[in-house]
Design a protein around this nucleic acid. Sequence first.
DNA 1: GGGTTGACCTGTG
DNA 2: ACACAGGCCAACC
Length: 108
Amino acid sequence: MTKARIYALVAQIPKGKVATYGWIAERAGLVRGARQVGHALSVLQPKHDLPWHRVINAQGRVSLPAGSAAAKRQIRRLRREGVAIKNNRIDLKRFGWRLSLDEFLWGG
DNA sequence: GGGTTGACCTGTG
DNA sequence: ACACAGGCCAACC
């Protein structure tokens, strides 16, 4: 099942890093299926116990309504893991799971 | 099966 | 930075 792959990938995001919907979709085999990733997370149930808060959009921003309980929860968890957030923005160059500049340039 | 909606992405102006 | 358009795909009515 596709959702299962998505969940498995989300579970693999290292602590202190973040991934975008697009990257998850790509790794799950859904080349242009970022929306599917978002939906999979939206229907996520607590029993899955996944680090969904490490998944953000390609703009490096939390994709939930700013100020909502869910958004605050996500931001708080990320900051607790050492991810710096400014105005709901995250520096993907530094905290991106995949685009850690070193790996990207030096062939990680 | 058709139409709408949504935790999206990319390009253009 | 903002608005718009076109393209994804799954879930829902």
